[in-house]
Amino acid sequence: MMACVKFISRPSILCFTISRTLYFNSKIRLFSTVKPTIKTQGKLSKARFGINLNSRFSMSSSSASPVLSEQQNQQVDRILEARNDDHGGVMVEMINEPMDAGVFVSLLRASLSHWRCQGKKGVWIKMPIELVNLVEPAVKEGFYFHHAESKYIMLVQWLPSIASTLPVNASHRVGIGAFLMNEKNEVLVVQENSGNFGGTGVWKFPTGVVDEGEDICDAAVREVKEETGIDSKFLEILAFRQSHKSFFEKSDLFFVCMMQPLSFDIRPQEAEIEAAQWMPYEEYAAQPFVQKHELLRYVADVCRTKKDGGYSGFSAVPTVTSFSKKKSYLYLNRQDIDL
């Protein structure tokens, strides 16, 4: 692991990069013997340093003191390893090795001072779940939660005195609904055995949530297969809806996707689906639940118009941008454009 280590001495100030291994036991070895470059009165020279701390630190996760003694602070004057981000800030990715909270606070305070002197803006700390004992000390030093995943918490702090321009956490969840018709003008519908529609007897399109890193068109194919066993091909996005405060206070985007069925033998997913069938479209649209809700009526009308050939949706066109070589999709109306 590489670390930027700053020694403060009089009259010299040393800043260099070294390789180090931390051992948190009765004798703490901070780093191996190195040859740093020393700047003394405008001249550069070489010296050798080998430093060991003989202090004992408690390794209990939450009981460790966040404040070191004055002598320890004088001995431990380093900064956390970080990389610059693209917006004038720094990112610290903590490795999941045990660290005493007091040592961490000393490092963090020295690091914040260093980054302020550099004019850095946002400071991000990716804290693995194994270092949960360091979250509270970081919060007490001015950090707050940006987001959390199953294996880490992302902490952040804005350093300048001006208003923060840090982006908020992901604000939307993305879902799909799949519209499939066979040659008999029958639509694929399901009844769910749980959730808002569980036990209601309502027939609805197969729906689901887009996974992280998954394209909308691929999610629609996957959800149809998982819920009904039907293989399908994505054709178009017919419409989409945005709503707010729907899932853990986040907004929601829902895309109605037209699919072409490639198989027709239904095999419902037992865990989530109570029943599935091919239903005459007009029977689906006439359901009281569909007619009662304006949004569902609009969707039914769009699908009917598409079925009758009077509507064109948005097809998925694979693209690559100049700033990313990864393939993505641009969804557009291809009816009036020559690609």
Score class of each variant (00 low, 15 high):
73 N>R: 15
255 F>Y: 14
142 G>N: 01
307 K>W: 00
314 F>K: 08
202 V>G: 00
118 Q>V: 05
322 S>F: 11
103 V>P: 01
182 N>W: 08
94 M>P: 06
55 S>V: 02
75 Q>W: 06
140 K>V: 08
170 A>V: 08
1 M>R: 12
167 P>T: 07
213 G>C: 01
203 W>M: 01
273 I>D: 10
90 V>M: 02
154 M>W: 11
265 D>R: 04
73 N>F: 09
32 S>M: 04
6 K>T: 15
86 D>G: 12
87 H>D: 15
146 H>W: 15
326 K>V: 14
245 K>T: 07
10 R>N: 07
287 Q>R: 03
233 K>P: 07
270 E>M: 04
208 G>H: 06
199 G>C: 03
265 D>P: 03
138 A>M: 12
14 L>I: 09
127 M>A: 06
96 N>Q: 11
76 V>P: 01
133 N>I: 01
335 Q>C: 04
254 F>T: 11
53 L>P: 01
331 Y>G: 00
297 R>M: 03
227 E>K: 15
39 K>N: 09
133 N>G: 11
72 Q>S: 14
238 L>K: 09
146 H>C: 12
34 V>T: 04
217 C>T: 05
336 D>S: 04
290 V>E: 08
230 I>A: 01
11 P>C: 04
160 P>G: 06
297 R>D: 04
4 C>I: 13
61 S>W: 11
228 T>C: 11
303 C>D: 05
81 E>C: 05
219 A>I: 04
331 Y>D: 00
25 N>P: 08
138 A>T: 13
89 G>T: 15
83 R>D: 14
124 W>Q: 09
259 M>Q: 12
300 A>N: 08
166 L>Q: 13
207 T>W: 07
7 F>K: 02
80 L>S: 12
86 D>H: 09
156 V>D: 03
249 E>V: 11
50 G>K: 00
271 A>Y: 12
189 V>C: 09
67 V>S: 06
235 L>V: 11
290 V>S: 05
57 F>Y: 12
185 N>L: 08
264 F>P: 00
181 M>F: 09
91 M>W: 10
31 F>T: 06
265 D>W: 00
58 S>M: 06
71 Q>M: 14
4 C>F: 09
161 S>E: 15
279 M>H: 04
261 P>A: 07
316 A>E: 03
329 Y>C: 03
166 L>C: 10
71 Q>D: 14
131 L>D: 03
233 K>F: 07
168 V>T: 15
60 S>H: 05
290 V>Q: 12
269 Q>C: 09
54 N>W: 01
226 E>D: 12
156 V>K: 02
94 M>S: 06
